[in-house]
């Protein structure tokens, strides 16, 4: 028999999975019919989260608000580029937000990322099985990230959310640069091992 705690976790995962599938369907509606209501639903969900991310990355309120607009505008105009076999909608939103952050906050070029998308565009159309696998992987990563040991999770959070460079992370946590790198690699292989069940 499952313990109460275990049951709760499983229910949460089901809810998460359901919202992931719902987001994919909203993207489909945007691409198929330019559905404004579907877009609005995604904005209401992701807009405030994108803003939270930008503020943690060091953006002022007004800049963070502008970035929310930019990211969601890109989601609308490039909706046809979303590939459900590449992962959850949230993963795609993250990559758009990351690119906007590179261009606006870091003042560098996100062009290499766009060109790489073009490589994917040239590859084959997604089949249903690949889409399911991708959803399972996104879901698995979310669970595994939450489960990482604190010292590894912290480094991931510094890099992916706070947008700190590795030397900034080292300085902030008073760690040698080599330790930051090795914890990053450790976190990566831990996630990877957790995902082997899906491959």
């Amino acid at each position: 028999m499952r313990s109460v705690a275990e049951t709760t976790v499983i229910l949460d995962d089901d809810v998460h999975q359901a919202s992931m599938e719902a987001h994919k369907r909203l993207m489909e509606q945007i691409v198929r019919t330019g559905d404004r209501a579907a877009f609005k639903a995604l904005f209401v969900y992701f807009g405030p989260r994108i803003k939270a991310l930008m503020i943690k990355a060091g953006a002022e309120q007004a800049v963070a608000d502008d970035l929310v607009q930019d990211v969601m505008m890109t989601l609308w105009s490039k909706a046809h580029l979303y590939r459900p076999d590449r992962g959850a909608v949230s993963t795609w939103v993250y990559t758009i937000a990351r690119n906007a952050r590179i261009d606006r906050l870091r003042r560098r070029s996100s062009q290499p990322y766009d060109d790489l998308d073009d490589v994917e565009l040239a590859s084959e159309e997604a089949d249903a099985e690949a889409c399911t696998l991708a959803s399972q992987q996104s879901e698995g990563v979310a669970i595994a990230v939450a489960d990482l040991p604190e010292d590894q999770r912290q480094i991931i959070e510094c890099a992916f959310v706070q947008d700190l460079s590795q030397s900034e992370i080292a300085a902030k946590l008073s760690l040698p640069l080599g330790t930051v790198k090795s914890r990053m690699r450790l976190a990566y292989s831990k996630l990877k091992r957790r995902l082997e069940v899906y491959q």
Partner: peptide
Amino acid sequence: DIGGSLIESE
């Protein structure tokens, strides 16, 4: 996907 999961949990 790590980034995606973190944006969801913001």
